[in-house]
Design a protein around this nucleic acid. Structure first.
Lengths: 337, 337
DNA sequence: TTTCGGCACTTATCCGGTTCAGCAGTAGCG
DNA sequence: CGCTACTGCTGAACCGGATAAGTGCCGAAA
């Protein structure tokens, strides 16, 4: 049951290893007749190139890495990562690249994983997600010299190649829509305050609220879990001048917020409008279905993968701004009572 | 910026490549003084073994594969896979194994991926999920000779190593609990009918209902999506002798069912009891929080990874029956009105 | 004093591909 | 006819590490 090698093919075809290599790689140097014979034999005995041997010759590892740095219980919650991964993969597998995945606990462990992968020659590059403010990973990766695409805003990506979407524009669209419905008190239940995209959304939210002359526009930060989303909602809805609309930073918190509102005998959307970030089946399954800021996450991941492969090939390395998220209105938003 | 090799270390230490190799691998053949000097140099210049070179010497690839064969949009929905993956990873990374992940569209593509990974020497083994009835993948993998752990029932795993949990027992526990509450008409909204675990749950459900002498116990099959869960629920609740309890095969369908019930002005749990399969933050966030059949999915994945690594090492290859899922009661179940 | 054993290394080979230099054979051309 | 140019192939080196087979040297036992 030994794996066949090009030496086996060479023996059967009665030529040298070199000739077999040329034939199998579409290189000139063998006649068409010989090439056809070699290919037929290779196919017959089920030969596959051994990537280890190829990689040894300075060739690509034909794999890229993705280390996710969130506790397992948070990862399972949001469809975001799974969708992102499938988008990345669709692109990678079309080019016969493999994805190495690892879930780690903290940034230090994450960097350890990247160092190992890169040092061992396991990957040709990686995708970095969840940028922090003053993210220590950026300078460390720059020093490593590993090709990396950052899913996040260019302002925090250093010299790494960013792929990002204009979250600010989506926040503005959402708030303007709510203001047009007549809402004057809009609250935001945001994610982790140290994440760059949270900061960007925070700033856009504050700016557009001020620009529209809205009354009070509190932002509450959470860890993205339903519990904290529920707690934040409870606090907001208990305040004297409670908001008439709440914008959430993910879907699970929005659903939790919806439950809290219904528990407090508030009608959604009559008494409270709710907007979720990132669409998911979840948002369409609850009553009323949630108005969401939707983006094509698999496409987003696919673009990142494309850019990374280009970067690895030494080609086109310009930053890519993806299409901005779009507001999709459903039953959870309406003019305030 | 070339990656350092043992030749670099040998040059700096003034010894041969062989000596360096012995020193770095803890083999006898070098003095402790030399070993220490070599290790210090290796550490200083940041040397890492090139896995490609190691693999070429017949060593392990130190990676295992997982190909998921479900459309991307279904994958993101259920926390199951993400939790399973993080559990697998926790075990793998502790042993410095990497996980190769690929999302594919159908079984044929999945087998292509396994063939390529195995043929190219990229992986030492793989984990197979979502067993079908008469699954064509089982005999094909048996023929390939790749070490594989199957997450699923032994009856369908052929000669591959199964890791499974007793779903039937959990179904029995659930139905008996509902019957003890006084329910006589219990329905089941199941997943894809071709999956082995669906069949096992189906049979257990029918058997225990018959054993308890319950009135009508319909099972409706779906594709696991919220839409189909909602549709099935609507149909069940519109029937003349509608069930007083529904057991769902995942969490998203249970939540969809809850919304449908509330839309139909049925009180949960007074008019309808609901049980979900697999716990998730989602189940705790909705009102009322859902009674669930819970299992420790990360642990499950971890056990599968352990078994696979044992199998690769040629050690302990007995099937593993994991702890059965346990019923966790919350607010969505009560005696029928 | 010789011999043997073992330590601490070196040298050479191998893994499975890629790639380059070289070398027949032949066709083209003056 | 002789020279060049090209085709189609061979042989060997090489990638980075593992490892079997030496080799030189020292100390202890006969």
């Amino acid at each position: 049951m030994r794996r066949p090698t090009i030496a086996d093919i060479a023996r059967q075809a009665g030529v040298s290893k070199g000739a077999v290599s040329y034939a199998l790689n579409g290189q000139p140097g063998v006649s068409e007749a010989t090439r056809a014979r070699i290919l037929a034999i290779a196919d017959e005995i089920g030969w596959r190139p051994n990537i280890a041997a190829r990689a040894l010759n300075g060739a690509r590892a034909h794999a890229v890495g993705l280390a996710l740095c969130r506790p397992a219980r948070f990862l399972g919650v949001e469809p975001f990562f799974m969708e992102l991964i499938s988008g990345i993969e669709a692109e990678l597998s079309a080019r016969s690249y493999a994805l190495l995945l690892q879930v780690v606990g903290d940034h230090e462990a994450e960097m350890g994983v990247y160092r190992r992968w890169w040092g061992e020659g396991r990957v040709d590059g990686a995708i970095l997600v969840d940028l922090h403010l003053d993210d220590p990973r950026v300078p460390e990766i720059e020093e490593m010299g590993m090709p990396v695409v950052v899913i996040g805003h260019p302002s925090a990506a250093g010299s790494l190649l960013p792929v990002w979407a204009d979250d600010g524009a989506a926040v503005r669209e959402t708030v303007e829509y709510l203001a047009a419905l007549g809402h004057r008190r809009i609250a935001r239940v945001a994610g982790l305050p140290r994440l760059v995209h949270t900061v960007i959304r925070d700033r856009a939210f504050t700016d557009v609220c001020a620009g529209l002359g809205l009354d009070v526009c509190p932002t509450v930060h959470t860890d993205y879990t339903g519990e904290e989303g529920a707690r934040a909602t409870r606090r907001l809805l208990s305040s004297p001048d409670r908001p008439t609309a709440v914008v959430y930073d993910n879907d699970i918190m929005a659903v939790a917020g919806l439950s809290v509102a219904q528990e407090m005998r508030l009608d959604v959307p009559a008494d409270l409008s709710i907007v979720a970030w990132d669409d998911s089946p979840l948002c369409q399954v609850v009553r009323p279905p949630l108005t969401v800021v939707a983006r094509d996450i698999p496409a987003y991941g696919g673009h990142a993968a494309q850019r990374l492969l280009s970067l690895i090939d030494g080609a086109d390395t310009r930053p890519l701004e993806d299409v901005p998220p779009r507001l999709t209105t459903r039953g959870s938003t309406a003019p305030p009572a």
